[in-house]
């Protein structure tokens, strides 16, 4: 391992891997930093298929899509530092300096001419959507539930209520059903589902799971463990309609209420946050106008529906980062 790289990529999800490959192809020295013990990002827990339809014209599962890129990364000889967390990122004149930590190396530092931030996104949680009532065990985000079932083999519950009709929630409705749980229904406060129509069809309709539109969870009930939720209909202005309340017994509540780009790591840089996407403002080469040499792609830039476009954004960022590093060298 060297101390200085042309391009350092933060996050080895599909965005980060695509940008590293492109930067390497263009002749840059590249290093990828990943906090998990393996590359692949969120794809590793998305065991369902539907990835790569646009890019490869094939119906791959998440881990298969990741495997393809990991193989290319290996072939290109690109270094990945796994189980390594980026703690601090600053720009010092013409260079980025980063402080990292890993069990193996302890705290250490690296320098890069260009940095690609492909740290993905995180899920909105119950703290952020203002449900009233108790805070017992048994409330999960859909991604958490997905990690529990698919990676660890634990069921989050036997009788689930799903709040929000995002794609991950729909996919988890099917996954829970296949594993023998009962999904009481999916509740969506809006009058239209937010997930793809194909997921309504293959995840809900195939298993006769009801979708309740214009209805939301208003209260969580349970001491210690969740026992039920209160659901209620809302009017056009999203206010609860009196008299439409119902108590739904359940032992877990799964939230699929949106994703937010994960960019905490940029707090020490003068980047401008995009109020709409939650990511940072960039030009069409995915570069921050305020911090030259800083690129952002994938879900860290804005939340994408399809992994194919995530990889594409990585390629754009990787190519531009490589060019930036080359020019910086002259």
């Amino acid at each position: 391992m060297k101390n200085v790289y042309d391009v350092i990529v933060i996050g080895a999800g599909p965005a980060g891997m695509a940008s590293a490959l492109t930067a390497r192809e263009k002749g840059s020295s590249v290093l990828i930093i990943e906090r998990e013990d393996r590359p692949g990002g969120i794809l590793n827990q998305c065991i369902h298929d539907g990835f790569g339809l646009v890019k490869f014209n094939e119906k791959l599962t998440g881990p298969e899509y990741a495997d393809r890129y990991v193989r290319w990364i290996d072939e290109a000889g690109i270094e990945i530092l796994t189980s390594t967390f980026l703690l601090e990122l600053i720009k010092d004149e013409d260079e980025f300096r980063m402080k990292l930590v890993s069990a193996e190396k302890g705290v250490f530092s690296l320098r890069g001419k260009a940095v690609v931030v492909s740290t993905g996104c995180r899920e909105r949680s119950d703290r952020q959507i203002f449900i009233h009532g108790d805070r017992p065990a048994g409330i999960f985000t859909a991604g958490q539930a997905q990690a529990f079932i698919n990676r660890m083999g634990y069921m989050p519950g036997r009788r689930a209520v799903i709040l929000g009709s995002g794609d991950i929630g729909l996919i988890m409705a099917r996954r829970l059903t296949l594993e023998g749980a009962e999904v009481e229904g999916v509740y969506e406060i809006q009058s239209r589902p937010s997930g793809l129509q194909r997921n309504i069809s293959q995840c809900l309709n195939d298993f006769s799971i009801p979708l309740h539109l214009g209805r939301t969870v208003s209260r969580v009930i349970g001491k210690g463990r969740i026992e039920a939720v209160e659901v209620v209909s809302v009017d056009e202005r999203m206010n609860p309609v009196k008299g439409t309340e119902a108590i739904v017994p359940c032992d877990c509540l799964i939230l699929s209420v949106g994703l937010i780009p994960e960019i905490d790591i940029l707090k020490d840089l003068p980047v401008v946050k995009d109020g709409k996407t939650g990511g940072i403002v960039t030009d069409d080469r995915m570069e921050s106008p305020q911090v030259p040499g800083l690129f952002s792609c994938g879900n860290a830039h804005h939340v994408y529906d399809l992994v194919d476009y995530v990889s594409e954004s990585g390629e754009i960022a990787g190519s531009a980062a490589s060019e930036f590093a080359r020019e910086a060298a002259i």
Partner: peptide, 21 residues
């Protein structure tokens, strides 16, 4: 007809489930 994906148990240390289709 539908494709089917799930996970299976493993006897490999440190690997609790493996993804299959």
């Amino acid at each position: 007809r539908r494709t089917l994906q799930t996970t299976i148990r493993t006897a490999i240390p440190g690997c609790r489930r493996a993804a299959v289709r």
